[in-house]
Amino acid sequence: MRITYDIWTGTFAFDTSGARPFGANIEARLDRHGQVVAFDGLSFGMVLSRNGAEALRQTFPPPGVRYVSTDQDLLTSVPVRWRPDEAITLDVWMTNEGTTVAGTHAFVAPRPAQPWPSWIWDAGKARWMAPVAYPQDGGVYDWDEASGQWVAAPS
């Protein structure tokens, strides 16, 4: 996932294509348009909320660090966790030269791919469930969609 701040337009862009069912690495990036960017008091951060409750707050730079300039697009990467179907909201901000710009983006965490058309989503366990329970006899089984049953795996 990427949050990109465009230095020319002063706006944030959010790319959630990297969101996975149980989390992602959120990259804070600059669109520098090939320029070296000088900073004057740069700070930035994000608040991630899951289903309306704050789950993570990150601010940069860390204490004792001062950003002066960069010729790189990637500022930092933060690993985050969530569960499928959670409503995720990202509130971000960046301050430089005394001016603060903020942005918000909301999305729903994706579910894992459905393994078979007959399987049903169990929201409480956050997983796909076969319509027939897995046999508990110690054997190894594969799902057979055509018959809607577990069949002994070939040895």
Rank of each mutant, 00 (worst) to 15 (best):
M1C: 02
R2P: 01
R2N: 13
R2A: 09
I3E: 06
I3F: 13
Y5L: 03
D6Y: 08
W8A: 14
W8H: 09
W8Y: 07
T9Q: 09
T9I: 10
T11C: 05
T11S: 10
F12K: 02
F12M: 04
A13N: 14
A13L: 13
F14Q: 06
D15P: 13
D15M: 14
D15V: 13
G18W: 02
A19R: 00
R20D: 15
P21N: 10
P21I: 05
P21W: 04
P21G: 05
F22T: 11
G23W: 10
A24S: 15
R29T: 10
R29V: 13
L30E: 09
L30K: 04
D31H: 08
R32L: 01
R32H: 04
H33Y: 09
Q35E: 15
Q35L: 10
V37F: 06
F39P: 02
G41R: 12
S43Q: 13
S43T: 12
G45D: 05
G45Q: 00
G45T: 00
M46T: 02
M46A: 05
V47I: 11
S49T: 14
N51K: 06
N51D: 15
A53T: 15
A53K: 15
A55L: 00
Q58R: 12
Q58T: 14
F60A: 01
P61L: 03
P62F: 10
P62M: 12
P63E: 14
R66V: 15
V68H: 08
T70Y: 15
D71Q: 06
Q72R: 13
D73V: 06
D73H: 13
D73I: 07
L75P: 03
T76P: 03
S77F: 10
R81N: 09
W82E: 06
W82L: 08
W82D: 02
R83V: 06
R83D: 05
R83S: 05
P84L: 02
D85R: 04
D85E: 08
D85K: 06
E86L: 04
I88C: 01
I88F: 02
T89H: 03
L90Y: 09
L90P: 03
D91E: 11
V92W: 02
M94L: 15
M94S: 06
N96H: 01
E97C: 06
E97L: 03
E97Q: 08
G98S: 00
T99Y: 01
T100C: 07
V101A: 12
A102G: 11
A102P: 04
T104P: 00
H105Q: 06
H105E: 11
A106C: 07
F107T: 01
V108M: 01
P110E: 05
P112C: 04
P112F: 02
A113R: 07
Q114D: 08
P115T: 02
W116H: 14
D122S: 11
D122Y: 14
K125I: 05
A130H: 09
V132R: 04
V132K: 06
A133D: 10
A133P: 10
Y134F: 10
Y134H: 13
Y134C: 12
D137Q: 12
G138D: 03
G138W: 00
G139L: 12
D142G: 07
S147M: 02
S147I: 02
W150K: 07
V151Q: 12
A153G: 10
A153M: 12
S155Q: 15
S155D: 15
